[in-house]
Design a binder for these strands. Structure first.
Length: 426
RNA sequence: GUGGGUGUAGCUCAAUGGCAGAGCACCUGACUGUGGAUCAGGUGGUUGUGGGUUCGACCCCCAUCACCCACCCCA
């Protein structure tokens, strides 16, 4: 029934199955990051409020971050994202680090928001950044790394795409249409909302911003122009490299992607499920001003972040999750027949562990059907049985649950048989 | 911060204001050495909580808490 003490609003409990998914995301993020030569870093979960006030949008931080005074009265923030901490750490050692930096991180972040589908107050975020280089090659690598993750986690190009644009390209097109530079920030916001509003209210919003009808039509043409990227040398080079990396199927140009944040300066990208059912799976781009914003010297950078929630929803939707997330980490279960054979069962289990096979042994004497059912439900691959019949002849029975077969063999051949039936020992 | 919805068995959900139910899960047995499948039986409830209306409340009303969805926002 309902427990009297509840979990904190917006948090999740990680039962073994959910922990399996969390670990899958983490291990995949790690594997992909490292395959591109990125190093893991981390920061404190607690930061000063000042760190986030240094960025634009300080009002959002005050309203959406967990902020509380420490005993000395300083305002402490539970980190709502990783990038400001990264910028702080880079600025602190800016002269001693070896560039380009290839850094990745994974960890919990907190935002004080109303929980809803795909959004909790505590979540995990994967962050990847390439710092110190201002080149389309760097942009291409970042997009390719994101695409590699999507492929590695088991999502197909028919299911998920990475949409790429360039803010500098859109800016120059806007000024060519006579949109004043001081309006570009608002127009980016307008573009960002294109798919979130009805076309009538979107056009009304555009005219409200002061666009004339010609400029509005020009903007609509712009957003419909799938070949616009050819006008951008950066995007042209970027797409060419992504093709060389063999990931072109996941990536396409999308002029409506501009990102909501103000600090992006060039290439921007987001990964979406192709039905547009959820929010962006991941998002990022080039941000060449952020390190300077926290007190360092100007340093170009490109990166992206991915929360654990939306990608999990997408994986569930496409049934791309491995079926054994809640299974026992051991593949072998040794049953216990009766009091007199208990010692032998435990000895077999110990011997298998010494040979590198993770092995569980049933922890009490119980009916065999109970033990088999347990083994089945916990996802073991093989169950070992040794009762009076086997023990009398130094034999053991191996039941292969996945094939529904069993055989009785000399105990001396057990390890050899398991090497055949199981993944290689650790 | 704003609006809407839902709270009934472990889970998913039924039940004109009139005996609180089903499916799944679980336990037992059919099957004293064999999981998944089938069949039979069984355990399981202060209907979120507190008030009110009523002869009578899961149902109507008020309050409260929790969760969900959307808006807002998304670093």
């Amino acid at each position: 029934m309902k427990s009297s003490v509840q979990a904190v609003k917006g948090t999740r409990d990680y039962y073994p199955e959910e922990m399996g998914l969390r670990n899958l995301l983490y291990s995949t993020a790690r594997a992909v990051s490292e395959s591109f030569g990125y190093q893991e870093w981390d920061s404190p979960f607690l930061e000063t409020l000042d760190l986030y006030a240094a960025k634009s949008g300080e009002e959002l931080v005050k309203e959406q971050a967990f902020v509380f005074p420490d005993r000395g009265g300083d305002l402490i923030t539970l980190r709502p994202e990783l990038t400001p901490s990264l910028a702080r750490m880079v600025a602190q050692r800016q002269r001693q680090l070896v560039y380009p930096l290839r850094w990745w991180s994974w960890g919990p972040c907190w935002r004080y928001e109303r929980p809803q589908k795909g959004r909790t107050r505590e979540f995990f975020q994967w962050n990847v950044d390439l710092i110190g280089v201002d080149s389309p090659q760097a942009d291409a690598e970042m997009i390719a790394l994101a695409a590699s993750f999507i492929r590695q986690i088991g999502l197909q190009p028919s299911q998920v795409s990475i949409l790429v644009n360039n803010r500098a390209l859109i800016s120059s097109e806007l000024s060519r249409m006579g949109v004043p530079t001081e309006k570009s920030k608002q127009v980016f916001r307008l573009i960002d909302r294109r798919d979130k509003m009805s076309s009538e209210s979107w056009e009304a919003y555009a005219l409200e911003l002061g666009l004339n009808p010609d400029q509005l039509q020009g903007l609509k043409n712009l957003l419909a122009d799938q070949e616009l990227w050819r006008k951008s040398p950066d995007l042209t080079a970027c797409f060419d490299l992504i093709e060389a990396l063999g990931l072109k199927d996941y990536v396409r140009f999308a002029p409506q992607i501009v990102r909501g944040l103000d600090y992006y300066t060039g290439t921007v990208f987001e990964a979406w499920d192709n039905d547009g059912e959820f929010r962006a799976i991941l998002g990022g781009g080039r941000y060449d001003n952020l390190v300077a914003a926290v007190g360092g010297d100007p340093l170009p950078a490109v990166g992206f972040a991915m929360g654990d929630l939306v990608v999990s929803l997408v994986l569930k939707k496409f049934k791309a999750l491995p079926p054994d997330l809640g299974a026992s980490p051991a593949k072998v279960l040794v049953t216990v027949f009766d009091e007199s054979s208990l010692h032998s069962s435990f000895a077999v289990a110990a011997d298998l562990r010494r040979h590198g096979f993770p092995t569980a042994v049933y922890p009490e004497v119980a009916k065999l059907s109970t033990q088999l059912k347990y083994g089945d439900r916990m996802g073991f691959w093989v169950i070992l049985m040794l009762g009076p019949d086997e023990l009398a002849q130094d034999q053991i029975t191996i039941k292969d649950l996945r094939r529904g077969e069993q055989q009785t063999i000399p105990q001396a051949e057990l390890v050899e048989q398991l090497r055949y039936l199981l993944p290689p020992p650790a």
